[in-house]
Amino acid sequence: MKLDELTKGVFKQNPIFYLVLGLCPTLAVSTRVDNALGMSLGVFFVLVCSNVIISLFKHRIPPQVRIPCFIVIIASFVTIVDLFMHGYAPELHERLGIYLPLIVVNCIILGRAEAFASKKSVFDSFLDAVGMSIGFMLAIVGIALCRETLSSGKIAIFDYTIVPTFTQSPSVMMTLPPGAFLTIAVIMAMIKYKAIRKEGR
């Protein structure tokens, strides 16, 4: 079932809420919805490219040095994203700051290379990467929606106001790391609660 490789990353094996991978960028960049979208875009490009390339050369990469090979490939794509974003989306580049080059150490990407792309066919790896990226995007944008709403009292995506100001005294804590942990915990608890209910317990 091909479609399954795509959809599993979005729901059943969502990288953030089920695999609990890639939490560092999720905690750091989910302060604003537009930052979260920019981050997702970077992860999408890097994950799809690295998964496809690694799957293409999986028989040529010696198992003893597979991790260095994966990292060199991933780091190259990250640097390419970094350079292009610096030149063509300087404002986003500025706001993502250090977390853009840190996509290299995003566990989702190395995790998918090691667990999936190095074993499966190129097309399956492509589907897996697209699904995982969409799952990552849904999770990080969802978290950012909660955090930006609560921490600034409004939501503005690339200067377009989505939710107008509804409070003058928002909670600063939501923009800090504890806010991210709380949001992730609450969402994860709700998902688990639903899963348990579904099992009829």
Binding site: V72, A75, S76, I80, L83, F84
Partner: peptide
């Protein structure tokens, strides 16, 4: 073991040099 890793590094280096050249002016 070593040669595949070296080849990957060389290709990556070349790809990055090309990208840098493309974006340098713009940055």
């Amino acid at each position: 073991i070593a040669i595949p890793l070296i080849i990957i590094c060389i290709i990556s280096g070349a790809a990055l040099t090309a990208t840098y050249g493309l974006t340098e002016e713009r940055i």
